[in-house]
Design a binder for these strands. Structure first.
Length: 256
DNA sequence: ATGCCGGGTCCTACCCGA
């Protein structure tokens, strides 16, 4: 079984990139982030011919997540439990397929909006960890994939790319990422590439791609049963070299 | 420490991303 995650930075700009990638990589499930459109505007029909059904959780202009799956699935949730009712940001989708619960997340960046913006990121991570712990207690196979907007350690960013104060590397962000690991989840890419470096994002600016100055912020976390089945976990760097690419590449996880 | 790039939108200057 092949599961993947990809922050596409606008599905309208990347509709054909995704179609080509599905055709090439043949994932069973692809979780998308930053579709940047409302749910009804997601181009589901463009992927039906390739055998994929879509479910989108969108909003105008910002954020937005979606699922493309060629296996039957049910949508279990369209917002992260534990956040205030007033929170309307489209950052979460939860499905079940083949007995596996899959969470697709677009975690807040945390650098905009000052102290309030960073507090929102941490609250979001607290709610995610609480929900993950509850799901783990049910003993069902669980995977959390998406753009976490966290470099878990200093090995997960090219030297000099971010200041120490950046929300992606601050201790509070990293502590909350570790809470997910302590809950029993395995960081799939790290498990397969413990000595790195491995990047999933390169900034559009400053020739970051050409200089290979990237970050590892897109992750796949697996519950123990799925971690036992892990055979490969890799970013698809080829996607970053295409014309008009997203600044993120797909992260692909293969399970036996 | 940043917004040079690249997306978005009350269409055009400004917000947001990492």
């Amino acid at each position: 079984m092949r599961i993947a995650t990809w922050n596409v930075n606008s599905i309208r700009q990347r509709e054909q990139h995704v179609a080509r990638w599905l055709d090439r990589a043949e994932p069973d499930v692809l979780l998308l982030q930053e579709i940047k459109c409302e749910s009804h505007a997601f181009p589901a029909l463009a992927y039906h011919g390739l055998g994929y059904q879509a479910e989108a959780v969108g909003q105008k202009a910002y954020n937005g997540v979606a699922v493309l799956s060629r296996r039957p699935f049910v949508c279990r949730g369209r917002s992260l439990p534990g956040l205030p009712e007033s929170d309307a940001q489209a950052r979460y989708i939860e499905i079940e397929t083949e007995g596996i619960i899959l969470l697709g997340i677009y975690l807040p960046n945390g650098n905009s909006g000052g102290a309030e913006g960073y507090a929102y990121k941490l609250a979001w991570m607290d709610a995610l960890a609480s929900h993950a712990e509850a799901l783990m207690a049910e003993d069902k196979p669980l995977a959390i994939l998406g753009d976490f907007n966290v470099c878990p350690t200093d090995e997960d960013l090219a030297p000099g790319t971010l200041p120490k104060t950046d929300a992606l590397v601050r201790p509070e962000s990293r502590a909350r990422f570790r809470r997910l690991i302590w809950a029993g989840l395995t960081d799939a890419v790290h498990a397969m590439h413990p000595h790195g470096p491995v990047w999933t994002f390169w900034d559009y600016q400053g020739g970051a791609w050409q200089r290979d100055l990237g970050l590892r912020i897109d992750h796949a976390l697996l519950s123990p049963e799925l971690a036992e089945r892990l055979v490969a976990a890799d970013p698809d760097r080829d996607a970053r070299g295409e014309p008009q690419p997203s600044d993120h590449v797909p992260v692909v996880v293969d399970l036996a």
